[in-house]
């Protein structure tokens, strides 16, 4: 399982995303419905030839996981760096 993690573990950032690249089919739902506009579709492709999303603006991601809810392919999830009440 090839995980592409961006921003993980950094205490300055509110959240980050985890992507299982091999599952992604490049539909761009995650990017389109990200409420903070943190994601972008990249030129990078997975083995099946689908363009992958990338966390273009890590500082915008709050780890709300709406990308995860919209993902038809169980390929992405948002993770909060701190518990909700601290944000």
């Amino acid at each position: 399982m090839a995980d592409h993690t961006a921003g993980g573990g950094s205490s300055r950032l509110r959240g980050y995303v985890v992507i299982i690249e091999e599952r992604c089919k490049g539909c761009a739902f995650c990017q389109a419905f990200c409420p903070t506009g943190a994601l972008e579709m990249s030129d990078r492709m997975n083995r099946a030839g689908y363009h992958l999303p990338v966390l273009r603006f890590p500082e915008k991601c709050n780890g709300c996981d709406l990308c995860g809810m919209y993902c038809p392919d169980f390929a992405i999830r948002g993770v909060r760096n701190r518990p909700r009440e601290d944000v």
Partner: peptide
């Protein structure tokens, strides 16, 4: 069994996710 058989952008996967 992942990835599943549904096409890119098919809503069945979103419904299953929910």
């Amino acid at each position: 069994r992942m990835p599943h058989i549904w096409c890119p952008g098919c809503g069945v996967g979103v419904s299953l996710n929910c």
